[in-house]
Design a binder for these strands. Structure first.
Lengths: 119, 119
DNA sequence: GTTTATATATCGTCCGCTGATATATCGAGA
DNA sequence: TCTCGATATATCAGCGGACGATATATAAAC
């Protein structure tokens, strides 16, 4: 997985961006990422274990996420879990991708693929 | 290439959506699609011949684009060109994808990955 | 007439997605 | 306590799309 940090970067894979979005507001473990993505997309996007753990492995190697040593309250914790968070670079990559998607949505609106927000 | 027409469809590949966007406002031939994508994305997305003609072939088979018999003014034409346009299904697919991306951009904004439009 | 841009097409390689499979533990309820 | 579904992580083989390289040919420009 080659990550381009310059502002003219090719698109991330959809699965990678979904995981970055899931980690954007808080640290999560793998299974928690899976549930958050499913919840946020209303069941449209379902990351199977292959996609999930395969993506996590590649994103760790690319340096856009990292494992966190922090653990939640012991009563809420589970030893099996492995928690992840965005790196500084990972947040930059997520921001760049969000901007790219935003431009693409604007272009789709210009081509009348989206309903106008205001008359 | 499996295209899902229901409203809860998995994402298209980025290259496929770029081509749908290029054809959304007018018919174009392959090389014209390539230039339009490069122009619209300001050089960020460059479809090489493998991606371009491979994607066109798959999209034809999937029924989301079709070859057009229409030709422009003979003086502006070129016999080598093959013109394509969206099918009805292709436009529906493009609209569904644009809506999916719009939701994703909203979610990115909720997670503070995009600057707020209004304070 | 030579070169550059236009135009289409195929091929092999790489790599991410996916479902299947495996393993193990936690929590709830009978 | 036993069982079972949910939780949790991990690997693997197969498929399919992206991509660069390569090929071929014609139009346009100089």
């Amino acid at each position: 997985m080659t990550i381009h940090t310059n502002h003219q970067a090719p698109s991330l894979t959809p699965a990678t961006f979904e995981i970055l979005l899931a980690l954007a507001d808080q640290e999560r473990h793998g299974y928690g990422i899976m549930r958050e993505v499913e919840r946020r997309t209303e069941g449209v996007v379902k990351l199977g274990p292959g996609t999930l753990y395969g993506s996590i492995k590649r994103m760790l190697e690319a340096g856009i996420i990292e494992e966190s040593g922090d653990r939640p309250d012991p009563e809420m914790d589970d030893d099996r879990r492995r928690y992840y968070r965005l790196t500084t670079q990972g947040r930059q990559v997520a921001i760049a991708e969000a901007n790219r998607l935003q431009r693409q949505v604007h272009q789709a609106r210009e081509k009348n693929l989206l309903l106008k927000l205001v008359g």
